[in-house]
Amino acid sequence: MEIRLNQVGKKYKNIVALNEIDLTIPQGMFGILGPNGAGKTTLMKILMALLPADTGEITINGIPISQRTKIRECVSYLPQEFSFYPYMSVLEAMDYMALLVGIKSVVKRKEIINELLVKVNLIKHKRKKFKTLSGGMKRRLGIAIALLKDPKVLIVDEPTAGLDPDERVRFRTLLSEFAKDRIVVLSTHIVGDIEHTCKNIAIIDQGNIIFCGERQHLMDEALGKVRVVEIKCEELSDIQSKYYVISINEANSGYSVKLITDKKIGEEVKPNMEDAYLVKMLSHTSDARSNFQELLC
């Protein structure tokens, strides 16, 4: 069970969204990380057969992406901006989508819907209208809808955007459970989303895959490049102009600054996932600083 992309390219007029990328996605949770506008959503839509690639080949479990009907039978998609008809209740929304995915029998529909609502912990809220659900509930409903056709592949685009920390953790756990016998492709620009859930990740930037492999390898690559220096207050602007600063904390005599550098200054620290991602981004592009600031925000 795997997804294979070979030399996949996509352009929107003069903008290169995907630059002939190669990627293999194995079974389990797979994270696609990248800043906004990196090409993640385009990639997700291509994988869902909602958008044709200009070049290259894609197969999902051996099925070419051109066979859209077959692809849609085995792939589910939870879009970035998941929403539903506000006037429908949770139950009605599930039933409507169950019809669209082709579950003919009323009895079977009820059975599957109840089972999924229990799984995503929405059974108590099944009579609630969509418009009255919280952000987390809506996302969980989205997952339940995506799982209606029992897909082999689940594609989730920016799933935790707008969720509070509690909901975010619960949502990640939910996805991990579903990934046991499926491929779950999780696209995000939030490092925390994949830090504890995805063993394998890819980093995409400006339409290029700049890293693909195990999460640990990314962390290993960043070893020795993340350091913490203690500085006085007046040195801060100087440090910021010379180095890529990851974080600034107040210390006794000034600041404790975490930064990325090859120089042997300050004290070396073990990089976390976010540090490793920033190191990778920095090494890839010289103008990545603005993206770092966005991520730090």
């Binding site: 998609y77 019809l99 669209l100």
Partner: peptide, 9 residues
């Protein structure tokens, strides 16, 4: 729309 587009109807 995207949810409906990606269904197999």
């Amino acid at each position: 729309q995207e949810l409906i587009f990606s269904s197999n109807v």
